[in-house]
Design a protein around this nucleic acid. Structure first.
Length: 606
DNA sequence: CGGACAAGCTGA
DNA sequence: CAGCTTGTCCGG
C-alpha cells in the first residue's frame, strides 16, 4: 500500500500555476484517525507531519497509536485505525499534532470493530476500553518466565485440550490449578467477575512465582508478558503471547457492560480466542445456557460436585401456623440465635417491590399456572396475571380459600425485628456500610449484594427465596441457582459447619432441587427446554430499544420477516431475532435518528 | 462532543 | 433590532 504514495511523489513536474492546495500536490503518509469524542463514530484522515520523518518519530506511529489531532476548532485525542490510506480527493488534510502513546493492537481494533457491530454501539467506546488509562510511551522489561511447577491435575489439563470448553466447576473448587495448567500454553488471559477477586487472584499468583498483570492499571506490563487478570474490560487487554482465555463465573451478569455497547465478556472472549486460535474455557458452578449451547461440557465426578455444594435447609412456609406472619418463621428463631464461628447473613431482595400474595389459609403462593408469575389483586378483587392480563376469581388453587395476605415488608423494620428475635445486634449491609461498622457483629441483613461483601459465613439465610424464583425475568431460575452457588462458597461444602437456609413456599422447585442435590443439571435440562419452547435466548437474540427517539427508530425498523417486536412498554420496545448476526444486521441497517436512543443488545433483565 | 452559525423569541 | 435561547450542522 505505501507504494501508491511513492508513485505520486515521483511525478516529474509540479504545475507552478496550480493552487498550492491542489490535489496534484505531493501527498505524504496519511492515517485514518477515529476521534476520542463521544457522539462521533466516524474516522477522519490526517497527514503525518514531514518533520516526523526527519527525526524518526514516524516509526512510533502505527495502527492503534493514540494521537492528538486538530478537530474543527479544537484539539482532541484519537486512535489511528488505518495507516497509509488513500484519502478522498476533495478534502484538505490537516496534520497530526502528536503521538500521545500506545494503544490497542490492530488485531484488537478488529475485535473492537466486531464488538461495536455485534452490540450496535460506537467503536470509540470499545477502543477506550481497550486502551491504557494513561499515556504509555515506553514498555517495561519482560518478566521472567513462570516457574512451571508440579503437573496440574488431570481435570485442569483436560479443560484446555478443547478449543471450546465449558467447565462446570463445583462451587468450592480451587481455581489455581486451572491457571497453572493454562500457563503451559502461553500467557493466559483470566477474567473474573469482581475487582476483589481480580486482586486476590493476582496476589495468589504472585505468591507462587507466576508473573501477573492486573488490569486495567498494568496495561504496559500486560503487553510484555505473563498472566493477565482483570474484570470484564480485561477481555480487551493486551497479552504478549496469548495461550488461553479463562472466564471465571461465566454466568455472572457483571461480565456484561451496562453502558452502550452492552458487550458481554464471555462472547468477546469466545471471539478473541477463536481469532487467535487458542482455547477458551468458560468456568462456572452453574453454566449459562449460552455457554452450554456453545461449548463442550466438562464435569467433575458426580459425588465430588455434589459434596462441594453447601448443605441446604429448607423452611417450607406453607407448613407453619399463620400466627407468625411476615418473613420470620418459627423455625428461623433458633438459627438466628445460634452463634457460629463466622457471621450469619440474612438475604432479602428489595428490588422490584412485587406485591406477593399468599393464601391466608394454606399459605400457598398465588401464581399464574401458565406463566409462573405472581398474580396481583385488582380493584374488583380479581386475580390478574401481569403477563397476559387474564383475570380469574380470587380462589386459592390448593385449598379453595378466598382470603389472601400480602407478603411485603420493609427492610429497616425487618432489621429491628430480627435484632429483637435474635437477641443480638444486627447490622444492615448497604453500599455505605464500612468494615468498621461491622466489627464484633455476627448477624447481618442485606440484599444479595451482601453475598459479595463476605469471604466466609456460618449461615446464609434467604428470607424470601420465592422472590427470586418468581422474578419476572426469563433468567430468574439461572440467577436464583447462581445465588445459591455463591452462598455455597461462603458457607463451605457439605461437611463443613456452614449451611444455607431457604424460606420458601415452593420447596419442590427445580432450582432448590438442583442446589440441595448439588446437581445443576436438574435445572439446566428443563430450563433449556423451556427456553427453546418459548424461543428465548440462547435460541434467539434480543435487543431493548428505549430513549426519546426510540419510537422514530422503531418506525424506520418496520416489521421485517422473522423479527418479533414486543412493546412499547414504558417507552421501550423489545426486538427479537432468530440469532445475534441477524439482529446486528437489522440494527445496523436501520437509520439512527438524532436524539437519545439506547439500544441494549442481549438485555439481561427482561 | 462542542463550536459556529442560523433562526426564533423577547423587550423597549 | 440587540441580546439571548434553541436548533442544526459539521469536523479531514
Amino acid at each position: 500500500m505505501p507504494g501508491k504514495m511513492s508513485d505520486q511523489s515521483q511525478l516529474p513536474f509540479q504545475d507552478a500555476n496550480h493552487d498550492s492546495e491542489s490535489k496534484e500536490e505531493t501527498i505524504g503518509r496519511v492515517v485514518r484517525v477515529l476521534p476520542d469524542v463521544g457522539g462521533i463514530d466516524r474516522p477522519f484522515d490526517y497527514l503525518v507531519p514531514s518533520s516526523w520523518l526527519a527525526d524518526g518519530r514516524d516509526k512510533n506511529l502505527q495502527v492503534g497509536s493514540r494521537v492528538r489531532i486538530p478537530f474543527g476548532p479544537r484539539r482532541v485525542a484519537g486512535w489511528v485505525v488505518e495507516d497509509y490510506v488513500d484519502p478522498p480527493k476533495e478534502v484538505k488534510l490537516r496534520e497530526l499534532t502528536k503521538i500521545s502513546g500506545m494503544g490497542p493492537s490492530s488485531e484488537m481494533i478488529q475485535i473492537a470493530r466486531w464488538v461495536s457491530y455485534r452490540w450496535a454501539g460506537k467503536l470509540s467506546s470499545v477502543l477506550k476500553t481497550a486502551s491504557p488509562l494513561r499515556n504509555i510511551d515506553r514498555l517495561p522489561a519482560s518478566p521472567p518466565d513462570a516457574v512451571i511447577g508440579a503437573k496440574p491435575p488431570i481435570w485442569a489439563i483436560e479443560a484446555l485440550e478443547k478449543p471450546k470448553r465449558v467447565l462446570r466447576m463445583p462451587p468450592n473448587e480451587e481455581i489455581l490449578p486451572l491457571i497453572k495448567a493454562a500457563i503451559r500454553t502461553g500467557d493466559a488471559l483470566v477474567i473474573v467477575p469482581s475487582i476483589e477477586m481480580s486482586k486476590s487472584l493476582t496476589d495468589d499468583l504472585k505468591r507462587i512465582g507466576i508473573p501477573v498483570s492486573l488490569m486495567p492499571h498494568q496495561w504496559a506490563e500486560a503487553t510484555v508478558g505473563g498472566v493477565v487478570v482483570g474484570t470484564r474490560s480485561a477481555v480487551f487487554a493486551p497479552v504478549r503471547k496469548l495461550g488461553a482465555i479463562l472466564i471465571f463465573d461465566e454466568h455472572n451478569e457483571t461480565l456484561q457492560e451496562e453502558r452502550m455497547p452492552t458487550w458481554h465478556a464471555r462472547e468477546v472472549a469466545i471471539e478473541r480466542a477463536r481469532r487467535a486460535e487458542v482455547p477458551c474455557v468458560l468456568i462456572s458452578p452453574t453454566p449459562s445456557l449460552e455457554a452450554l449451547q456453545w461449548g463442550e461440557l466438562q464435569k467433575f465426578p458426580k459425588n465430588h460436585e455434589s459434596e462441594s455444594w453447601a448443605e441446604v435447609q429448607i423452611i417450607d412456609r406453607r407448613e407453619e401456623n399463620p400466627s407468625r406472619p411476615g418473613l420470620l418463621s418459627d423455625a428461623l428463631v433458633p438459627l438466628i440465635r445460634a452463634k457460629g464461628e463466622n457471621p450469619t447473613i440474612c438475604i432479602l431482595n428489595r428490588k422490584g417491590r412485587s406485591r406477593l400474595l399468599a393464601c391466608s389459609h394454606c399459605g400457598e403462593l398465588v401464581k399464574c399456572e401458565d406463566h409462573q408469575v405472581p398474580l396481583i389483586q385488582d380493584k374488583d378483587e380479581m386475580l390478574l396475571c401481569t403477563v397476559d392480563g387474564v383475570r380469574q376469581p380470587s380462589l386459592c388453587i390448593r385449598c379453595g380459600s378466598t382470603r389472601f395476605k400480602n407478603l411485603r415488608a420493609g427492610i429497616s423494620r425487618l432489621r429491628e425485628e430480627i435484632e429483637a428475635l435474635a437477641r443480638q445486634s444486627t447490622v444492615e449491609i448497604t453500599s455505605e456500610t464500612k468494615a468498621a461498622d461491622v466489627t464484633g457483629c455476627k448477624l447481618f441483613i442485606g440484599t444479595e449484594a451482601a453475598l459479595h461483601r463476605f469471604k466466609k459465613a456460618s449461615q446464609v439465610i434467604f428470607l424470601d427465596f420465592d422472590q427470586e424464583l418468581l422474578a419476572r425475568r426469563f433468567r430468574a431460575n439461572e440467577q436464583a441457582l447462581s445465588l445459591l452457588a455463591q452462598a455455597s462458597r461462603l458457607v463451605g461444602p457439605k461437611g463443613s459447619d456452614g449451611k444455607i437456609v431457604i424460606q420458601t413456599r415452593q420447596p419442590d422447585h427445580e432450582v432448590l432441587q438442583a442446589a440441595v442435590n448439588g446437581d445443576p443439571e436438574l435445572l439446566s435440562e428443563s430450563e433449556k427446554e423451556r427456553r427453546r419452547i418459548l424461543n428465548l435466548p440462547p435460541f434467539s437474540a434480543q435487543a431493548e430499544i428505549s430513549g426519546a427517539s426510540a419510537e422514530i427508530f422503531m418506525n424506520s425498523l418496520g416489521k421485517p420477516e422473522g423479527i418479533q417486536i414486543m412493546g412499547p412498554r414504558d417507552g421501550s420496545w423489545l426486538v427479537q431475532a432468530p440469532n445475534s448476526e441477524y439482529l446486528a444486521e437489522l440494527l445496523h441497517k436501520t437509520e439512527r435518528p438524532s436524539g437519545r436512543l439506547r439500544i441494549q443488545v442481549d438485555p439481561q433483565n427482561i
